[in-house]
Amino acid sequence: MIQTLFGGPPKPSLRERLQQKMAGAVQKTKEALVSQVDELLKGSPEISPELLREIETLLLAADLGAATVAEVLAQVRRSAEADRQTSGEAVRGAIKDELVRVLNAAPLRTREVPDGQPFVLLVVGVNGVGKTTTIGKLAQFFRGQGHTVLLCAADTFRAAAIEQLEVWGHRVGSEVIRQKSGADPSAVLFDGLSAAKARHCNYVIIDTAGRLHTKSNLMDELSKMRRTAERLVPGAPHETLLVLDATTGQNGLQQARQFTAAAGVTGLVVTKLDGTARGGIVVAIARELGLPVRFVGVGEGADDLIPFEAERYIDALFAKG
């Protein structure tokens, strides 16, 4: 799904590199997964209430949320009965299939970009999830595919946010359009899109101030930015990415819901997935709001943002916390 959006399929060498990265990011959790499941299977070779309870705990510990876990387990039970599967191994497979199905079922929502217009990417999220860092990495990603990228510093609220984006711009070789701290974000956006059109840039990535989804005035500001973007570039923003911290719990669903209502989120970026973070909340979000995960952040380097693949990710989820 990423490929349809971001140009042709990656070259094999690139693809291999991405796979290595993902494998590296989930390695620890993978090891833990294998040992966990093995132990589980040794103890109870057949489906028992205890086994299901153990699995429930594993899923809950991965932040999938009580409602999602209940549904996934119900689905697993149904398919197990239908197929007369009795082994724990089959149960594990059924759970994985179900999770992958949920994650892959989320539709692609990106809009078409008219010829000669920049692809406008709006990046939103609550405070401290890693929006600015993600934008730096996104710029690197598109630059790596041979596109021109313009960054737009519309986080005019947080102290030194503009400077942080400029450091990233310098690092990845993208120009940053900015105004002074405290300026109207929509005004910066206007400047950014005008510049991108004048310079025939392929991509414009817009940084926004972190905001808690409960602040309705700040959410209205996002709606206003969308309207501004649309006036300048037809159909913009073509993609609105909600950045989620992988350690976020059940509140992530609330975030996704509110940001979708105010800013028309079309996809998710999960950050800080390296280490032992879980990020199971994205399954709940995909299930309830149909939002696909587009990218995951797996490290601090500029190259450490990779397109998301459901299968790999689910493997990482099954580690016990």
Partner: peptide
């Protein structure tokens, strides 16, 4: 972060 999930532990 008060919004942290299971990973908080």
């Amino acid at each position: 972060d008060a919004m942290t999930g299971q990973d908080a532990v």
